[in-house]
């Protein structure tokens, strides 16, 4: 069968940040608890005028720059997020209109907690692999919400990564995919609720680790690969600790994970988390490198991908802003008051 892979990618991280200390001081918490325990230092915050749609559009535009393709050729556009701005009305239509992909295009919004982004990539890849579309776009994006005072507030952040899949000028070939899923109530948000609920420590072993490790082991078994065969690994990163612990249990050395380990400074971008980790790796990986990516979404499940980096990446990676510089440069720090206003956490008269 014909090779299918990533032919364009783009990452977008908002410029605003809030430090763990700024949140902790409001709630009387010890910031060291979050910095040491969960390895969180600061997180991205969407601007008052940004949401999952605007972040997705910017990431998609960067991906199109690297792919060098006419957006009208996109046969499908999928956006995974748990913060689609409309409850009813697709993110994908607005996104597709903004990048010029309409009207001959299949679009859908995905939702599967933090896994929705790789889900969009998974289905997009499958469409291309099946020969139903020539090229397609899959995006993971979120402006995630953590309830004020909740532990999630220290991590819930914003960002997007977009991937165009195709068969020509492949930057990273998809060698294998694998999905692992059970019904596990670790985290949820009911209809009309503003903030999600989570099951505390139950989100660890029975949820994150069971599925992440299950998917990683599954895809390695399917491909006959071991951690030694990979140059980079990206695991879903709800905090700084979990992906490192997952890697350790699987036998991945820390340095293979660090390149895509953005969470201490980015926070948990939910559907964007694994895709952004992958884009940070693609920014620096060499042709021939093997990459393992395993996402995780509460509820719960994981998608796993094995990629092999291809030569054309060297020619296109500089055509759009890279991931790490967006994370490290031009930051604007918010105090808790402005952060609360930006995130709509203040009760007001309508």
């Amino acid at each position: 069968m014909q090779d299918v892979g990533i032919v364009g990618y783009g990452a977008y991280i908002p410029r605003y940040r809030i430090k763990v200390e700024s949140i902790a001081s409001v709630w009387g918490n010890d910031p060291e608890n979050y910095k040491r325990g969960l390895q969180l230092r600061e997180k991205s915050v969407p601007g008052h005028d940004q949401d999952t749609i605007t972040l997705s559009v910017e990431a998609a535009r960067y991906a199109l720059k690297r792919a060098g393709v006419n957006p009208e050729r996109l046969g499908c556009v999928y956006v995974g997020s748990e913060s689609h701005p409309y409850a009813v009305k697709p993110t994908g239509t607005i996104l597709s209109e903004a990048i010029g992909a309409t009207p001959e295009c299949h679009t859908a919004d995905f939702e599967f907690a933090c896994k929705a982004g790789t889900e969009a990539m998974y289905v997009c890849y499958a469409q291309v692999k099946a020969g139903l579309v020539e090229i397609g776009l899959g995006i993971g994006a979120d402006t995630s919400q953590g309830a004020p005072g909740d532990a999630l507030e220290y991590s819930a952040s914003a960002g997007a990564a977009a991937y165009i899949f195709g068969t020509e000028n492949i930057l990273a070939r998809v060698d294998e995919t694998y999905a692992y899923m059970t019904d596990t109530p670790d985290f949820w948000r009911r209809e009309h609720q503003h903030y999600p609920q989570h099951a505390g420590r139950f989100t660890g072993d029975p949820a994150y680790f069971k599925h992440t490790l299950g998917a990683a082991k599954g895809i390695m078994k399917k491909t006959g690969m071991t951690p030694e065969d990979f140059d980079y690994a990206v695991f879903h990163q709800p905090n700084g600790k979990f992906p490192m612990a997952a890697g350790k249990k699987l036998g991945f050395p820390r340095e293979k994970i660090e390149t895509g380990w953005l969470v201490p400074w980015l926070g948990n971008t939910y559907s964007g988390a694994s895709p952004l980790g992958l884009s940070a790796v693609l920014d620096v990986a060499e042709p021939g490198n093997k990459i393992l990516m395993v996402s995780f979404g509460s509820g719960a499940g994981s998608d796993a991908f094995v990629f092999t980096v291809q030569d054309p990446i060297l020619k296109v990676r500089d055509l759009a802003p890279k991931t790490r510089p967006q994370l490290d440069e031009n930051k604007i720090y918010l105090d808790y008051g402005r952060y609360a206003k930006f995130r709509g956490k203040i009760l007001r008269n309508s």
């Binding site: 410029r15 601007g47 005028d49 940004q50 949401d51 749609i53 605007t54 559009v57 910017e58 535009r61 701005p85 409309y86 607005i94 903004a98 031009n330 309508s350």
Partner: peptide, 23 residues
């Protein structure tokens, strides 16, 4: 230029998008 949300028409109405510029 970047794509941004320009305004929201109350809690029920449209979300309105458009262009803004950043440095």
């Amino acid at each position: 230029f970047e794509f941004r949300r320009m305004r929201t028409e109350g809690d029920e109405g449209l979300l309105c998008y458009g262009y803004k510029v950043v440095p």
